[in-house]
């Protein structure tokens, strides 16, 4: 009964998000400082008490915490997700601008990660213990180990100084405004994120591949005289695909977090930047709503991955 399963998962997801909402709200309030100290810095010290009082009401932090929570919750229900006093816009409109940037970046990164990671994993697993396997494994470790700000900064500096090429400096272009520029701006960030991802995917693919290749059906397939290539890419890979899909789904969640740094380096106005700036400026509504949206994406992707299992492996039944 996939529908019933989906419904149960949906309810669980909503509960998860409610938990996230409360947690983020509480943690934000525990952080020292507020929008006044973050705006005025040490100049806060020259403000009179009355000035501070009036600014507290301006920034809406004079209300008791529970009241702030429910008024924010109200804004989530009505869909405008709160108001950013600083920029004079609703948080929903800020997220509407930032979300496509991050989703496009994440999807492209996944693509890069899968395109590099899966074939390498198969090549590596097919000849486990050989020099080729070792080489690929080293690559995987490097992909995992080299922080993406190193790869990103390196790519930017290298291409700028050698080829005078840094498309991201032209200001972000959405795909519907300037598709060609958008592609250029996405390539390097996607590769930067995708490389790290490919390491993980490669290692998962390799071990899943190795495990699957010991299964009796593989021997049977070989015995039937099917070509080694077909066995590898159709029989084994298909059966090894569940862990690969799982890890890719989980990685999508981490990607939303990895984009924070990459969005900084490549000047992309995505969700990561929105959260980071929001935290720096103590814009509670912005941080709360954006994290809620990110969590929603994360939950949704995991749900989709779970539902995908049945496709990948017809033996799986949901109940």
């Amino acid at each position: 009964m996939p529908w019933r399963y989906a419904l149960v998962r949906l309810v669980a997801s909503v509960l998860t998000l409610a938990g996230v909402a409360v947690l983020v709200f509480v943690v934000l309030r525990l952080l020292p400082g507020d929008e006044i100290t973050s705006t005025f810095g040490t100049e806060t010290g020259v403000l009179t008490d009355r000035q501070i009082e009036s600014l507290r009401s301006y920034y809406g932090v004079d209300q008791p915490a529970y009241q702030q929570f429910f008024s924010w919750l109200g804004s989530v229900v009505t869909g405008n997700l709160g108001f950013s006093v600083r920029s004079g816009t609703s948080v929903a409109s800020q997220i509407r601008d930032a979300l496509p940037v991050t989703v496009e970046l994440a999807l492209l990164s996944i693509l890069v990660g899968v395109v590099i990671g899966v074939p390498l994993g198969v090549l590596s697993g097919a000849r486990a213990g050989t020099r080729r396997d070792a080489t690929i494994q080293v690559f995987g470790l490097l992909g995992l180990g080299v922080p993406n700000f190193v790869i990103g900064t390196f790519a930017v500096t290298l291409f700028a100084s050698w080829f005078d090429y840094f498309p991201n400096a032209r200001g972000y272009a959405a795909p519907w405004e300037d598709p060609w520029l958008n592609v250029q701006q996405m390539v390097f960030p996607a590769i930067t994120l995708g490389l790290a991802l490919s390491g993980t995917i490669m290692r998962t693919t390799r071990s899943a591949f190795l495990e699957t290749s010991t299964q009796p059906f593989v021997r049977t397939a070989r015995g039937k005289g099917i070509s080694a290539r077909r066995v590898r890419y159709v029989h084994i890979l298909r059966n090894a695909s569940i862990p690969i899909a799982t890890i890719t789904g989980i990685q999508f969640g981490y990607l939303l977090d990895g984009t924070v740094i990459v969005e900084q380096i490549f000047a992309m106005p995505g969700l990561g930047r929105l959260v980071l700036d929001g935290i720096g400026k103590r814009e509670y509504a912005v941080v709360q709503s954006t994290i809620l949206v990110i969590s929603g994406l994360f939950v949704m992707v995991n749900l989709l991955v779970d539902l995908l299992y049945a496709r990948l492996d017809p033996r799986i039944r949901y109940k």
């Binding site: 005025f40 690559f139 900064t153």
Partner: peptide
Amino acid sequence: VALMAALTLFVSACGDDADDQAADDMSAPV
């Protein structure tokens, strides 16, 4: 793959001077 591995090694060796400045948010309102 070998080429990629070499490039990555190169990156990790040369990236050091460039990475120091990553992610610092300066010009704060002090």
